[in-house]
């Protein structure tokens, strides 16, 4: 028996919003520790890695490890039926071919259940090597979303360049070019608005705007985002989801011809 209950359905709704542009289907691997999802998009340019820890749920029970293959557009349709303040419970029997979502209104006067067919997905677990990154940049997630949106008007790529002076985001195309430079903040009123840079070596890499914009769909999950870069390896864009886990996106850089 698998059962996971969240007091607010909004976290699960936001998680779905944050992955459904990249993935059409994915396996939720559930064990004692919580729920893990790891999948590459169809073109193998990006990878999503989601962790929801068991201790972040209001109730969590997983008697046997279970892999729930879900069609994410179907799951998204079902989660749209939940009110933001509803409690959501995901349930599946061992060896089940369906998963059930139960939504309860705050006063318990409305209880809905939705049963969804599971999919048999080929399990391809990827080992993500431990990497020491040359640069890590922490900034407001809303600021990062705005930068990606603004620069997308200029071209298909964003160049991210991190030095000890700060981080620069650049784009260029038919209408001209744009540069946004952020310096490390000396002092801020709100910690989540700080720009914090840790740099061992300067790094400059080029990434596709389209994917960065997909990643920023996770903005509402976390006030801050962390970018990790090293030469010639995938960028990591991490949103920590308060009290329950994180979503990490990996993106292969563009290569100079």
């Amino acid at each position: 028996m698998f059962e996971a209950r969240l007091l607010r359905s909004s976290i699960l709704k936001k998680v779905l919003e944050a992955i459904k542009d990249l993935l059409t289907q994915a396996t939720f691997d559930c064990d004692d520790n919580g729920i893990q999802l790891q999948a590459m998009d169809n073109s193998h340019v990006s990878l999503v890695s989601l962790t929801l820890r068991a201790d972040g749920f209001d109730k969590y029970r997983c008697d046997r490890n279970i892999s729930l293959g879900m069609n994410l557009s179907s799951m998204s349709k079902i989660l749209k039926c939940a009110g933001d303040k509803d409690t959501v419970t995901m349930k599946a029997q061992d060896n089940a071919d369906t998963v059930t979502f139960v939504f309860e209104s705050p006063n318990q006067e409305k209880v809905s259940d939705y049963e969804m067919k599971l999919m048999n997905l080929d399990l391809e677990h990827l080992g993500i090597p431990e990497t020491e990154y040359s640069c890590t940049i922490r900034l407001s997630s809303a600021e990062f979303a705005r930068i990606c949106r603004d620069l997308s008007q200029f071209g298909e790529s964003i160049v991210i360049s991190c030095t000890k002076e700060g981080v620069r985001f650049s784009a260029s195309g038919d209408i001209g070019s744009a540069n946004i430079a952020l310096a490390q903040t000396a002092s801020v009123d709100k910690e989540e608005e700080a720009v914090v840079i840790e740099m061992e070596e300067p790094v400059t890499l080029t990434f596709a705007c389209q994917y960065l914009n997909y990643f920023t769909k996770a903005t509402s999950l976390s006030p801050q985002v962390q970018l990790s870069m090293s030469a010639d390896v995938p960028l990591v864009v991490e949103y920590r989801i308060p009290d329950i886990g994180h979503i990490r996106y990996y993106l292969a850089p563009k290569i100079d011809d």
Partner: peptide, 14 residues
Amino acid sequence: GTTQGRLDGFFKVQ
């Protein structure tokens, strides 16, 4: 110009 890289090769199938 630039070409979009792929993740294959960075991550090993377990």
